[in-house]
């Protein structure tokens, strides 16, 4: 009996210890996961998650009802202080962002408060292109890290369209030869809603950010209050004077994935089988 036992029981004990060990360690390990940076008190989000929709994408409708099915993410904005010409105060304080995709195209909705509607009001979304990290201020060069370019989607109220651009450092902003981005804005009740849309993959990986359902990519936001000073005619914000965000995350959600449940079911089956064989062997050993 002891001989039979000595072959099986160590496995059980090690298995049980593993299970108990995992139970003890799991909460501890969860604690150790690096927490997402949460700088400001108002910081609510660190990522935009764009659900997959079955029907038509509201690519040119910032006020479509379907937007309410996309979870909003709120990001704090700062005046652009990184580079001259700076502004030390900006109109837009928070950017509410939603995303949707249909497997082919992606639509991103920016929503923010701006007390006046002006022809020069503008907004932009920014992404890194390729594998290299790009500085959030127009992908400007970094001293010790080889950076990549940024892809900027820009919309201005009076132009009423999206512009697809690239930059790698200040003063290098360039409109792309192939324009893949559409944009449309709607102003109501002191708030702008601007929707940008584009194919997930444009076929131009050197210039456009590739959006896949595989994971998170970096995203940043900017907004310009195009209010004119009545006496001087100067725009309140233009060019490098704007509200900007840091880099945050964006992802197009993958279709629902149930593999985790399958694996769990298989594991439960294996554990049950193991118990069954174990107890049968033990009982045999006992009666022998």
């Amino acid at each position: 009996m002891i001989r039979g036992l000595s072959r099986i029981v160590p496995n059980v004990v090690v298995g049980a210890c593993l299970a108990i060990g995992f139970l003890i360690v799991q909460p501890a390990a969860a604690e150790e996961k690096p927490k997402a940076d949460a700088p400001a008190e108002t910081q609510a989000s660190s990522a935009v998650s764009a659900p997959l929709v079955k029907g038509a994408l509201p690519a040119d409708d910032p006020t479509a009802a379907i937007w309410s099915s996309a979870p909003p993410a709120t990001f704090p904005m700062s005046p652009q202080v990184h580079w001259p010409t700076r502004n030390l105060e900006a109109t837009v304080k928070d950017m509410i962002v939603r995303g949707l995709h249909d497997g082919t195209n992606v639509a991103i909705l920016l929503e923010y408060a701006d007390p006046t509607e002006d022809p020069d009001d503008a907004a932009a979304v920014q992404f890194m292109v390729g594998d290299k990290k790009a500085h959030f201020a127009h992908g400007q060069p970094m001293a010790q890290v080889e950076g990549g370019p940024v892809n900027i989607w820009y919309w201005k109220n009076k132009d009423g369209k999206g512009v697809d651009m690239n930059a790698k450092g200040f003063g290098t902003l360039k409109i792309q030869d192939h324009q893949d981005v559409k944009a449309k804005g709607a102003y109501a009740n002191g708030r702008w809603k601007v929707v940008f849309s584009r194919p997930l993959d444009t076929g131009h990986p050197e210039e456009d950010t590739l959006i896949t359902t595989a994971g998170f990519i970096n995203i940043g936001f900017a907004a310009w209050d195009g209010k004119k000073d009545p006496s001087s005619g100067e725009l309140k914000e233009k060019g490098s004077q704007k509200a900007v965000s840091s880099w945050w995350y964006f992802r197009a959600e993958a279709p629902p994935n149930y593999t985790g449940y399958y694996y769990a079911a298989i594991a439960v089956g294996l554990a049950l089988g193991f118990q069954f064989v174990l107890i049968r062997k033990l009982k045999k050993g006992q009666s022998a």
Binding site: P34, G215, Y263, V268, Q275
Partner: peptide, 28 residues
């Protein structure tokens, strides 16, 4: 014990294979 053990194994498998909803962690 006989019921809990398979459930624990299943839960452990699920939580280690399930796709994470959180953006990547950053160790700056």
């Amino acid at each position: 014990v006989l019921i809990l053990f398979p459930l624990l194994v299943g839960w452990q498998t699920y939580s280690s294979t399930a796709v994470s909803d959180a953006p990547p962690g950053e160790n700056r």
